[in-house]
Design a binder for these strands. Structure first.
Lengths: 342, 342
DNA sequence: GAACGATATGAATTCGAAATCATAAATGCC
DNA sequence: GGCATTTATGATTTCGAATTCATATCGTTC
């Protein structure tokens, strides 16, 4: 690898001058041109380690996602990327699985200028604390209104769930089931805005709910979970005319099982999902779902982190919180409740 | 950030000794224990830049993917990750969109120990060359048998396409359409194993093909492309009884359009996809598709890169090529050709 | 034309760890 | 018990750039 020293030698100037040509400073036009030419010819590229050692800047920001093959997070990351690139930053993504298993705990530190945590609940408990203690600039994304210590972007799924339930009720549904992800380490309603929102809305409409109407899965965002989830659900509570799921993937899995068993969506049972991933608009049937503006969320996150870096602060003071509004997108997986004889 | 110097001071030893405690070397048990304790207490973590500057190792490997929200690549990356983590490496992912737009061209260099390129064709031409010239350890994934200069993993889609066509022909189909991604910068059959394989197989079965049977899209892996693709295709070639698409996403989009227009899959038209992404098994209908063992591909890629790093070689000599076998998975989007009156 | 500020360049120091070199104490060997 | 090894530790150099410090030249200005 060619170093600054070699460039200086070749151009017949001091190393300092090479630096000035690269980073600005007093250099006469003639010298500047000469040196620039040599740099180009030798294809000189400053060593990031040396640079980073001095400046403490990497221009790389880390994004930790629960799972890389979940399209929801993919779309959020697109949004992050857009802004990152605009500002000359590189985005590096790590899955929290890896982060959790990683031997050196806070390995981002020193390697990234900041980190963005998507759904921090999925990462081991110490992660947030570690980052905090390391004074690492940090922004987080949550799916509930939060008192997060770091700047954050959030989305109020409770409101989303209200809209979903309202929509179903307006179609005449009263026996509505729920299939949702639930972190096994947590209590039922502890920080589970989807579930909480669902229950609240049901109550608000005067609809009693029975425990059998709920089906939980520990497998976030898996199709299989949805597939087997409905199976159990309709088994223990056969009277359902509609189902709400805590994400689109679950909904797809559920629809599949239903179709395989001759139960048609939406004719026999209505299904509403949550997230509105790209596929949802073109699935069969197109899914009624709670739409989260993923790209926008990503944009906000990156901007938050950017301003932290610029101001050289970490998160230890008045944090900014941005709440992104969401809305129900009605498509074809929901319909008026059937009233014919059973 | 606490440095080695401070630790040394606190523990009453020299900096060298601290290093020895951390990285191995002659240290008496008593001193080792004492220093280790101080390290723990002060939560000392070596500076990656200083470390990297000296050792030229980052323990981070870069993976460049055409688009992060494509589940296909997500699954490959899972496979890469599995192996990476086992060996203490961190995986950082970059989308080629970003890489292409990035100002500093070879920004991985110095930041990553190696790079894995998925579908290099999607990245700007200079990328491969740049990495090559920088002697960066490199492994690539291609969807055709290749004479790639770097160690590589590939998959022979021509064989996959043969299986697909054979399957359809055995079901009685003769008028088979094709919807596929095509890099606009390339000639029709230039390095397009899917298309080539399709044409060859058709010919092998004595089936003539008309240009109108083909529909190309410049939008790799998009649902919309599939949606609008079939529309055009059936418009210009109405007699089709089956369609082959170059990836599952296109297939889903196509199925959606067909269903919306009262054309049922597989009763009226059979559809086969390619990739077998997670969703395909539970889509509606479950998709017949050419299955690529994505996780396995990822494992191989990481192993290749690992051995390059270990042997401190880049790719400039006898490169290893691994061809991963693929097979057609028959599900419910294909059926015997309808023979009733039209 | 002496003095001052702006322009232009080179030399020395610094970042934090690893690697090399140097030295001291403990141990083994004949 | 003297000398060669091991064992154990400290001092010095090095990695490659940024930053600070020092110096030299050129214009202005009065």
């Amino acid at each position: 690898m060619v170093t600054r020293k070699e460039v200086a030698l070749q151009a017949g100037v001091s190393e300092s001058t090479v630096t000035r040509v690269m980073n600005g400073g007093y250099v006469s036009p003639s010298v500047r041109e000469k040196v620039a030419k040599v740099i180009e010819e030798m294809n000189y590229r400053p060593n990031l380690f040396a640079q980073g050692l001095r400046t403490k800047r990497t221009y790389q920001i880390a994004c930790i996602v629960p799972s890389i093959d979940n399209p929801f997070y993919g779309e959020v990351m697109q949004g992050i990327e857009e802004v990152a690139i605009e500002h000359g930053y590189v985005l590096s993504m790590y899955s929290s699985r890896v982060v959790n298993k990683s031997p050196g705990r806070s390995f981002f530190s020193g390697r990234n200028d900041a980190v963005i945590l998507l759904s921090p609940g999925e990462s081991r408990g110490w992660l947030l604390r570690d980052l905090w203690e390391a004074h690492m600039p940090l922004a987080t994304f949550w799916d509930w209104e939060t008192e997060a210590p770091s700047p954050s972007v959030s989305v109020d799924l409770r409101i989303g769930m209200q809209a979903a339930v309202e929509h179903l009720v307006s179609l005449g549904h009263r026996d509505i089931g729920y299939i949702g992800y639930m972190n096994p380490a947590r209590a039922e309603t502890d920080r589970n805005p989807r579930l909480t929102g669902f229950k609240e809305s049901m109550a608000a409409h005067g609809l009693r709910t029975h425990p059998d109407q709920f089906q939980y899965t520990a497998d976030r965002g898996s199709l299989d979970a949805g597939y087997h989830g409905v199976e159990e659900l309709v088994g223990k509570f056969p009277g359902l005319s509609a189902i709400v799921t805590s994400n689109d993937l679950l909904a797809f899995g559920a629809i599949r099982w239903l179709e395989e068993h001759g139960i048609h969506v939406p004719e026999d049972i209505s299904v509403v999902g949550c997230d509105d991933i790209a596929y949802s608009a073109l699935s069969n049937p197109p899914l009624t779902t709670i739409a989260i503006p993923k790209r926008e969320v990503g944009n906000h996150l990156m901007n938050l982190v950017l301003s932290l870096i610029e101001s050289r602060k970490s998160h230890h003071d008045g944090s900014e919180h941005i709440q992104v509004p969401i809305e129900l997108v009605v498509r074809s997986s929901t319909a008026v409740k059937r009233t014919n004889t059973e």
